[in-house]
Amino acid sequence: MIKRLFITGIVFLAVLGLSVAFPWMRVPLIMALVYGTAALGVVVLLRAGQISFGHAMYMLISGYTVAFLSEAFPGTDGIVLVLAGTGVSLVTGMVLGLFLVRYRGIFFGMLNLAISMVIFTIVTKFYGMTGGSDGMRVPRPSLFGADMDRAGYEATLLIILLILAVVLVFSVQQFFRSSAGEAMASIKTNEDRLEYLGVSAKKLLWQGYAVSAGLCGLAGAFYGLSQGLVTPEAGYWLKSGELVFISILGGSAHAIGVFVAALLFEFVKMYASILVGGSWQLVLGVTLIAIIYFLPDGLTSLLRKKRQTAEVRS
């Protein structure tokens, strides 16, 4: 436990140190933490063996909630915006979840995709309200009541996101180990047996779905705040695909993996666009396929392998 806290502290300081030493790293780090948070939501479903190809919609819903609120009530504090955006996504997820938990596998994935496409289209088409494909601006709000300049604002967001990431990794990990979490994971291997133990698999999946929508909502709100702009693209199926990719890269064994994967994803993307300009997708695609090939169970498998060898030695 002490060792774990120690490592957390080191990582925490390293990220902060980097962002102070290299101010240009602030935005990619923020983005990595945002995507990591969203992908964490996808990992929750992955635990139950289900894959959603539409979860970026919860980022979109939350992002637009933030944008609408800050337009309707100028001067609303950033933290209030985040809570509101997350709340709206959570409630949407709880409602849609009622219908979606009846489906498994490809059908679950495709229905999430379909709903996300409907939402994406609505946002794009209702130009008058949403600004269409140009999106909506999110003016920089105060955070905890304090107005800041750009550098201070970004630094504060980064610190909030870092603390949040630590809290989320611990609590999602706790969720995975809880009795409900372990039961949810057995939906993946034998849902029929779960029913024969008198447990409702749908109810468990619904819980997981709500959590995942909430996490994506949280990420979406911070996405809006840090970009200062939300566009429908944030909810297009390609974004959902990227979230799935990050979560598989991270692996569903431990919640930490997904943040490492998000960091990797964001930096490969950044370096690729610096090195090859427009062709960053190509580099990203090749890197991702290579990682899947060499690390079958995601990045957390590295962690596990190390632990296993340690156990063998002792």
Partner: peptide, 30 residues
């Protein structure tokens, strides 16, 4: 390409095709 991943989880195979899609999108623009 998929043959290399033939024994893997269908989800993984699907993601490989997603990776291929990203690559092909850029090749097409090139």
């Amino acid at each position: 390409l998929l043959h290399r991943f033939r024994d893997r989880d269908p989800i993984i195979q699907l993601l490989v095709t997603f990776g291929a899609f990203m690559v092909l999108e850029d090749v097409q623009v090139m």
